[in-house]
Design a protein around this nucleic acid. Sequence first.
DNA 1: AACAGCCATGAACACTGTTCAGTATACGAA
DNA 2: TTCGTATACTGAACAGTGTTCATGGCTGTT
Lengths: 206, 206
Amino acid sequence: MAVQQRRARERENLRQEILDAARTLFLKNGFENVSVRKIADQIEYSPGTIYLYFRDKADIFNTLCEETFSKLARRLKAIADDSCDPIEKLRRAGRAYVDFALHYPHHYQITFIAGHKEKGIKPEDARIQTAGVNCFNQMRLIVQQCREADQLQGEDIDEISQALWAAVHGVSTLLITQCGFPFIERSRLIERVVDMAVEGVRKKSG
Amino acid sequence: MAVQQRRARERENLRQEILDAARTLFLKNGFENVSVRKIADQIEYSPGTIYLYFRDKADIFNTLCEETFSKLARRLKAIADDSCDPIEKLRRAGRAYVDFALHYPHHYQITFIAGHKEKGIKPEDARIQTAGVNCFNQMRLIVQQCREADQLQGEDIDEISQALWAAVHGVSTLLITQCGFPFIERSRLIERVVDMAVEGVRKKSG
DNA sequence: AACAGCCATGAACACTGTTCAGTATACGAA
DNA sequence: TTCGTATACTGAACAGTGTTCATGGCTGTT
């Protein structure tokens, strides 16, 4: 009886070992440059073993992404639940979003940037899509609060939320992928984008 | 004498054949899912031949990207050279940018989205970086015109240009990569983002 | 006709993700 | 203790990738 429990525990341990090794390698080298064999080497198992714990390589990454994105969702939720001025919340959420993206660039890249058709990450893996939508919904919530405080120009919450998302997503991806470009100082650019976005949807006569 | 000219012409022809085949295949299947062998099959040559005309697979794509991006630069330049209201130009440039991205999603994706560390596209290939910067500079020019017409809030042209770029880039990449997400109607979202961005940098008391 | 140089070949290398027959080990029952 | 079974793991194998290079055949010049 207890044997099965121990077995399950050991299974879970090895699963976590794989995830830990993969996380480290992915962060250091990116999804493309990490082979299943390298992950297997790291944990000192044979390549085949990986497939006893994960459906395929993408499955490993998806699991890691899910993990990471629930962190972002929690962070945004904390802001949404705060009781300060909703417009201020919007700014804070924007900054938090970009900070997060720059803090986990590889995770962000795969989840929100890379076309999921390529590299075998299929839409069937709705888990990640769900995790992403979850994050978006936290932002949407804050927008709703601004709307309720009559601070916004326009009625459509989705339209405004998606436009704001585009702005923060845009600056995130530019900073992640266009490392060669001569950007102005990072925090100043981020602040400007957040400001531009918020001012761009706010009611004119403040 | 004429022989060398003919040789050079034939060389150029085959080079173009490779580019044409690659363009079609890349557009249909994306960079990842097109192998050098498939390109070679298409033009009915052996894989090795490709390497007599291009350094590597990335070199082929880079050439195609450069081509495509000079198109965008021209389109933006045409808008910059127009003589209408500079703020109106800014809106038109924003729309043109997104339209372009959605029209050439694969090219846009590789050039502006994919991390260039991965998939062997190294920063050494400054050609594309240059082509991208060129496009940006056209937008920057229009921003400058707005500044000169005293239509903008803030002094720093680069700061404003980069923030605007983030917005249009953001909506472009979201629409390209997040095909699963329940976006509002495309043209409405694009219009809202452009509007948000422009209003977000414009002088308040119009 | 013989030599030169260009050009295309396709086999080969080292890698990739993934599968699967085989093996060893640990367990529960006799 | 011994046997049989279930489970975990292996590592060779497959089909694919990007890339290289010795080989061989044409072509134009001498």
